[in-house]
Design a protein around this nucleic acid. Structure first.
Lengths: 222, 222
DNA sequence: ATAGACTAACCGTCCGGACGGTCAGTTTGG
DNA sequence: CCAAACTGACCGTCCGGACGGTTAGTCTAT
């Protein structure tokens, strides 16, 4: 046959591995599985990448590069931090829908990219992408569009609510990614609006109550 | 010696396995690792639990039972949905700090409890706990304390921002869990306050821009 | 009181199987 | 003709689990 390989074999391997990792997780996918799914030999897969981990590295690098490229496409056309934030949240949710496999694979194996020495480039890209959101928040705080919150902590809050979506979001379900993004944006943007904060004393009282409840049910007590 | 075994061996196994799974993940921890850490034999571990998966099930069940017991402790003393919500967010963050190992183990292996047939009880407990938050939000919406949002979707937003914290929160770091909970609460409660929503047309314009940027960087294009 | 019966905890060994990775050799395309 | 692509057999390792045997403690019948 040898008919036109529309994509390079290397790329086919990445795409296939991405889907399998998204389904089952890195540890539950063997190099053999990838080879069988593509009807090639295990040796071929290891020929293109030196190791199993190198394929995951490629997945993560590709994923972060796409997100960064997208952000650099749409952000320059915006100037209002509020618009920028809404677009950013929209991007995060759309990737859950339109780049599903890579998003799930990246999210569920995020701890591997956070520690493995081989994954230094991914960490660098993650830092850059994270800095985009922090930058939006910083400018919003400075301009007075947002309340005086900690931009770094708020960015973790926003990444959290969207990244966690890999555990429950189903593309093609009742709600589209765009609808979810709009609901999330509404809450976040409303919450960042300058305005009254609740009293600290009330927060402390509640925290004390919750802390007491937790001390009553320690792990290990059975 | 044979001096008083303060905790049953079964419980020791659960606690040890919890810590190892929190550190490395379920697949990267072997029954042998647990046995060696406790200086007992592998056979003993398998004698107490029938299988490796059964230990994870115990971890997950214990974890969810603690969270439910806590919520049922502190909630009856509150009546304002805003207070309840703040306390709930505080509980979620405090568990990241004070029940760290179990929280991390539970979060990082959540997909396993979501699908495995053996984990039906965990799913049941999860649904109950989730219903607690949805209930708070529903009552808040009904009473007018919160804007007319979808309680289910909002609960996923809140669980997301706190559950994701397992990937970045470090107990003993610059910020305590309570401080983080307060910041998160401020944003969420402010965002749920009844008030003006942004125009839908603006949201649609932004989504279109982001969508275009995403289409320009498809996965597989390299 | 105590011999014998019974039980639960525990140990050490073994096994089939799957894993990631290596390599010598073959095929193929330019 | 040669480099790159590819193959399939193979290695050493480790895993979850099964199993038979040992010990220590408790119960029971006389």
């Amino acid at each position: 046959m040898a008919s036109a390989p529309r994509k390079s074999k290397r790329n086919e391997i990445v795409l296939c591995f991405t889907e399998l990792v998204a389904e089952r997780g890195y540890d539950e996918v063997s190099v053999r599985d990838v080879a069988e799914a593509l009807a090639i030999s295990k040796g071929t897969v290891l020929h293109h990448f030196g190791s199993k981990e190198a394929i995951l590295e490629q997945i993560n690098n590709d994923y972060m590069r796409r997100r960064l490229a997208e952000a650099r496409d749409y952000l320059p056309a915006l100037d209002d931090p509020v618009d920028e934030l809404q677009a950013f949240i929209c991007q995060l949710m759309l990737s859950q829908q339109d780049d599903r496999a890579a998003t799930v694979a990246f999210s569920r194996e995020i701890v591997r990219s956070a520690s493995e020495p081989l994954m230094a480039e991914v960490r660098q890209l993650r830092d850059e992408f994270s800095a985009v959101l922090v930058g939006i928040l910083e400018r919003g705080v400075k301009s007075g569009a947002f309340a005086d919150v900690d931009p770094r902590l708020t960015s973790l809050q926003i990444f959290g609510m969207t990244n966690w979506a890999w555990t429950w979001f189903k593309p093609g379900g009742r709600r589209s990614a765009e609808e979810i993004a709009n609901q999330f944006s509404r809450t976040v943007i409303g919450g960042l609006a300058p305005g009254a904060t609740r009293e600290g004393a009330e927060a402390e009282r509640l925290a004390t109550m919750v802390g007491a409840a937790m001390r009553a049910h320690r792990p290990g007590d059975i």
